[in-house]
């Protein structure tokens, strides 16, 4: 069999692996965004009884390697009555990890908005939620986007680790193909190129978004 033929025959496996990688990444990024914004807001404005536990979780999770976190949720979860199956456990672990990054990014981005903005929003009578929604978050977005997209690419790359709890994502699909064909080199290269393509398109999207939100000169 020619190399090209081998590659063509491997394509369906790689494709379904890629779909799983994209699913895991998209779900984790989405959950992490929602949870991270809530965590970050709690860190910024929450009362102490809320701020303290969130601070602890964020610091602990950020100090653990993602792989350890995935194993922890997958293996220790069932013992604690949280039997999720490998896919949900992996997504939960990745989400939690990224959520804690998002929380810190949110905190930093909001802190960069001048305190006078909050005052002006208060002065016209906006409620707390309205102040965040219409005044603070739109301005924080510009500072939020670059590190957040960075974090998204980290999540996409980190998603390769879910192969270690038996989820057939792009990474594991590649390894299975290599197991069948004994051609490690070309397939690892193909895999690397696919990851680079995903992340490169993300970072160029980020540059476009940054340009769109560059309304404040400073």
């Amino acid at each position: 069999m020619s190399s090209l033929e081998i590659l063509l025959r491997a394509l369906p496996s790689l494709w379904s692996g890629l779909v799983v990688t994209l699913e895991v990444s998209a779900l984790s990024v989405g959950c992490a965004l929602v949870a991270g914004l809530l965590f970050g807001t709690a860190l910024l404005y929450g009362p102490l009884p809320l701020r303290l536990p969130v601070r602890t979780v964020v610091d602990v999770v950020r100090g653990i390697p993602v792989l350890v976190l995935i194993f922890f949720v997958y293996y220790v979860g069932p013992a604690a009555g949280l039997d999720l199956g490998s896919f949900a456990a992996a997504v939960l672990a990745l989400s939690l990890f990224s959520a804690c990054q998002v929380a810190e990014i949110t905190r930093g981005a909001v802190a960069s908005v001048h305190h006078g903005q909050m005052e002006a929003a208060r002065a016209i009578g906006l409620t707390f939620r309205q102040r965040l929604l219409w005044v603070i978050f739109p301005q924080a977005t510009r500072r939020f986007l670059p590190p957040w997209i960075n974090g998204v690419t980290d999540t996409v790359k980190g998603s390769a680790l879910v192969s270690l709890v038996g989820i057939v994502d792009l990474m594991l699909a590649i390894q299975q193909v290599i197991g069948r064909t004994y051609r490690p080199m070309p397939f690892y290269i193909v895999g690397a190129i696919i990851y680079i393509l995903i992340n490169y398109s993300l970072s160029s999207a980020s540059r476009h978004l940054e340009a769109r939100f560059a309304y404040v000169r400073d």
């Binding site: 002006a120 002065a123 016209i124 009578g125 005044v135 301005q139």
Partner: peptide, 20 residues
Amino acid sequence: LSRIRAATGMVFQLFYLFPH
């Protein structure tokens, strides 16, 4: 407070317009 503040208008030394 939001309701009460809406009954007053404030103009600030440093304007604090919403830049976006």
